[in-house]
Write a protein that binds this DNA or RNA. Structure first.
Lengths: 214, 214
DNA sequence: GCCTGTGAAGCTATTCACAGCT
DNA sequence: AGCTGTGAATAGCTTCACAGGC
């Protein structure tokens, strides 16, 4: 049962909603309001209601949403039926930081292998994940049926890695590379660019010492 | 030169354009086309032309944009007049990864101090940046006139740090925290949430789908 | 009262399409 | 020819506003 495609923005918010709801479930709370969900996603209550409308979940006026049900509905949308295995390419500073932040915090997704050019890292565990040589990339992807990859390699290596991933069958890439990966349009790429993010912040932080140019 | 506020999306693309243009300047190229700029920002040529229209820069038909001029125009928009100093709070795995990726790659912005609760890190240099105890946070912010901060602390500490930053005068925060920082609306917050990003990728990796962007 | 669902309105962002320059 | 600038059109996203349920 394939849903009609939902926009990236809504998917992002659903992910945030779910994180909050899961917490509430653990605290054995039973209901949650749209304004609480809104706060966690920097959204408005009506936006939350819209989003939930898209996935076809109805709340109860004046009681809010039943958390156990809602988490199931959201998971039915976000999660692949039998779970997803992902790999990470590049186990430098950034790669290890990712490995210490992600595993265990993303329901339904597990990182099953890491890759690095550095031979000293190969054959060992990094944060509990086995690290392989770059030469094994295609083999492991095929064997594990990988469709999702995280790319955390230096900029100069990124294009080559992306090509290999795409050719080997990867259809979704989370990229930390500052230059866009050259992949064909059937591969979904999500760019996380810290430099762009910082420049945005610097811009909107406004002028030091309020110069007002009238 | 008074600018009206430009949208975050456009600022993000301008940042990417500038990175490419700077490279071209170094290669002593003189002109660049809108479709080249588009590629680097996952945009279309007409979007590029719109963006440049917003900042009031005109190209030359059939030659493109004069790179030396254009980089100046973009910088006049993005950069604070006398440069910006920023700090980073949290020097764990993620914090050090950031410190190894950002300094030197963002024109006009320098990271001048780091902070961590771990007393073993205080008083030392981390990637060339002096690390202070958390108690010095307000002092350093005041002394250096800091308006921009990067928050890379564990989730449970994030809210407290955000309050202190905002109270001390910070007006822009780049946050890597998975829960939204509780700051008043005059502080600009840019969230980088790896977990959400990964879930997006996993969702769109689903079936033979097509690409989109953030 | 407080909350939800949803049509309709309002906004923002992106693309089209074409005149005009080199 | 090949490119730009830009009004007009389109698409996409968010908010409003209000009827209806608890």
């Amino acid at each position: 049962m394939l849903q009609t495609k939902i926009s990236p923005k809504i998917i992002g918010r659903l992910s945030r909603y779910r994180r909050l709801i899961s917490k509430r479930v653990q605290q054995s709370q039973t209901h949650i309001f749209s304004h609480e969900l809104a706060a966690v996603a920097r959204a408005t209550p009506s936006q939350v209601r819209r989003d939930l409308m898209v996935i076809g979940y109805d709340g109860i006026p004046s009681r809010g949403y039943e958390v156990a049900q809602l988490v199931k509905h959201i998971s039915a949308v976000l999660d692949a039926p039998h779970g997803r295995r992902a790999i990470i390419v590049g186990v430098g500073n950034l790669g290890t930081a990712i490995l210490s932040n992600i595993p265990g915090r993303v329901p339904n997704i597990s990182i099953v292998a890491a890759f690095d050019v550095d031979p000293r890292k190969c054959g060992r565990l990094v944060n509990g994940i086995p690290c392989h040589a770059m030469t094994d990339l295609e083999t492991v992807i095929a064997r594990e049926g990988i469709r999702v990859a995280i790319v955390a390699v230096p900029a100069r290596a990124a294009a080559d890695v992306a090509h290999r991933l795409a050719r080997a069958g990867v259809t979704g890439i989370l990229s930390f590379s500052p230059t866009p990966l050259p992949v064909s349009s059937h591969v979904f790429v999500e760019d996380v660019d810290m430099i762009v993010a910082l420049e945005k912040v610097a811009y909107f932080a406004g002028e030091p010492a309020e110069t007002s140019e009238r």
